[in-house]
Amino acid sequence: MHAFDYARATEPSQALDLARRPDAAFIAGGTDLLQLWKAGIARPELMIDISRLALDIVKPRDDGIAIGALARLSDVADHPIVQARWPLIAEALNAGASAQVRNAATIGGNLLQRTRCAYFRSGDMPCNKRAPGSGCPAIGGENRSHAIFGGSPHCVATHASDLAVALAALDASVRVAGPAGSRLVGIGDFYLLPGDTPQRETVLGQGQLICAVDVPATAGRAAYVKVRDRASFEFAVVSVAADLVIDDGIVARARLAAGGVGTRPWRLTEAEAALIGERADAAAFDKAAAQASNGAEPLAHNAFKVELLRRTVRRALQVAGGKA
């Protein structure tokens, strides 16, 4: 457990100033960072406490909602407007972690949580994400929990966030602030594929900060279906977020994203395309679900996810489609 210095930021600009040091890390909820620090994976020299910045506001607008990066998961999940208009977000949040973690963890931190790949988390086994060039023992080793989409010969770790899956289905954007000002990045562009630099997971540069997540309004019917190995307090084996707009019984828009299957939250574009213009019925859902795993590249222990993903998509479509 590496020792570090501590600084409490009172203004975002001050936090960004402090973060000019390359060995600094922001801390807010701390629920993932402190695990990584205890395992020797994160070794910051300076912890910049951003938990008291006024970035925890949840601001509904006509065309969407802006969720402050420092809003706690439980506060967002309990927010009446989120529950009424973006139930997908509330469902995904409540499906993740424990009540204690949801009370501490923040929206921005949730999006930046690192993979649960046990080789990565071990602190000293080979892992290209943690120690570039050391190899990926998961590919030829234990890979039940690993990705069937987006892997590279260097890394097949999945992204663990439930929230990010919901946000991917909702075409959310991440508002990023840095020394050079702020920018909006679509969630589809925010996460990077591992390629040959699996240590880089997002477009966030050193010293940059997530300020907020912007989620556009949706008239869709939503469902978040999470398959897991125990009934609660467990990461997804496979999860699917669905957002369906149905006009007169016809699917006008379909957005589907999956967790537990990709090296980043995975949009299922072929399944979406198969739904557009179709009557929202069981036959169309089956047909779309059959497309969900196209292009999957399973490993020795996770081939079951190919079929499980199809079934989870079908269930999510049934649940979303069945909503009034």
Binding site: I27, T31, L34, S74, S98, Q100, V101, A104
Partner: peptide, 9 residues
Amino acid sequence: RRINACLAL
């Protein structure tokens, strides 16, 4: 609010 004291500085 309930939290895990082990994951809080």
